[in-house]
């Protein structure tokens, strides 16, 4: 009888039983055990390499011997910030990243809004598939595909010619700065490919933030007399802003650091990523490459600080 009746405190044998009991009594120990490996990874490999890079930027190259002088100096930064060519690269990259981010946000919003508030079941699955599918194929293939699409003999020009709108493209390409010989060798081309490649990274966080927006807040706003436009600016926009900021961190920093897209599609003028690639490769100037890398980090830091000050994260 006693064996059939359930014991009040049944023992659980074996080392695994003892281990779970011990963990239950000392939950902090379990946490420590679980966190140590990833923290070691993050601390040593991830942040460690970052600090090694930062340290590099405080050395300088001896231009006569081509050797790195390992005494701490700000000479590399002076070179970065006083050479007009370098400044051009920085300004060009930041402007491009800003345009790409803004435009991505503009086209991502309606898509994300639809997906978050209206799409259900099959349509939602279709949305995720549509947004994610381009991410599954090779980055290089997509960029070369765009190069062909935008080339002088490409399908885009062909369609415009068939529509007798070629003059429109011609007029556009004759514009200074954004124009060029063809779209595939213009800033516009670079811009289009950047937007195409980074758009999913804007849509997904925006969609997540819009999904968390309770419907009754929109109803409450309308109830209190806000026309749809007022509801957008007073409720939807501020509450979706953290999502847009999260998305913009992706689009902005990915554009700041990319060195392949502007090399394949664009007007052979350098972006930061390409400058880093050149300085650490052909030029062998690791300190300057490191200093270039610090620029996006400083810009992103400043951007986040501004966003926080403007209350972009208040609704989190």
């Amino acid at each position: 009888m006693s064996s059939a009746a359930a014991a009040i405190l049944p023992p659980r044998g074996g080392p695994s039983g003892a281990a779970s009991d011990a963990f239950w009594r000392h939950p902090k120990f379990l946490l420590l055990l679980l966190l140590t490996p990833p923290l070691l990874w993050l601390g040593i490999i991830y942040l460690g390499s970052l600090f090694a890079l930062l340290a590099q930027s405080f050395f300088a190259i001896d231009h006569y011997t081509g050797m790195i002088d390992y005494t701490p100096t700000l000479r590399t930064y002076r070179e970065l910030l006083t050479t007009p060519a370098n400044l051009d690269i920085i300004v060009r990259t930041v402007l491009m990243a800003a345009c790409v981010t803004l435009f991505s946000a503009l086209i991502a919003f309606p898509i994300a809004y639809y997906a978050a508030r209206y799409a259900r079941g099959k349509w939602k699955a279709l949305f995720y598939l549509g947004v994610m599918l381009p991410l599954w194929s090779s980055y290089l293939v997509k960029i070369y595909a765009w190069k062909l699409i935008l080339a002088k003999e490409g399908i885009f020009n062909w369609v415009l010619a068939k529509l007798h709108l070629y003059w429109l493209l011609d007029a556009y390409l004759s514009l200074p700065v954004i124009g060029g010989n063809s779209l595939s060798v213009s800033y516009t081309g670079t811009f289009l490919v950047f937007v195409y490649v980074w758009l999913p990274y804007m849509i997904l966080p925006l969609q997540a933030s819009l999904e968390r927006l309770p419907n009754n807040l929109l109803e409450a706003s309308a109830d209190l007399g806000a026309a749809p436009r007022q509801t957008f600016w007073s409720v939807i926009f501020p509450l979706a802003l953290p999502g847009a900021i999260a998305g913009s961190i992706f689009t902005f920093s990915l554009t700041l650091g990319d060195y392949i897209i502007p090399q394949i599609v664009g007007s052979s003028r350098l972006f930061i990523g390409q400058a880093v690639y050149m300085q650490q490769g052909t030029a062998g100037n690791i300190p300057l490459a490191a200093a270039f890398t610090v620029v996006p980090m400083v810009i992103m830091g400043f951007y986040l600080w501004m966003a926080k000050r403007m209350g972009a994260f208040d609704a989190l």
Partner: peptide, 20 residues
């Protein structure tokens, strides 16, 4: 008439206060 043009106001079940 849409809700924003009705002189009628609502106290929502879960209050629906604007968090921001």
């Amino acid at each position: 008439i849409p809700p924003y043009r009705r002189n009628v106001n609502t106290v929502f079940q879960d209050y629906a206060l604007f968090p921001h």
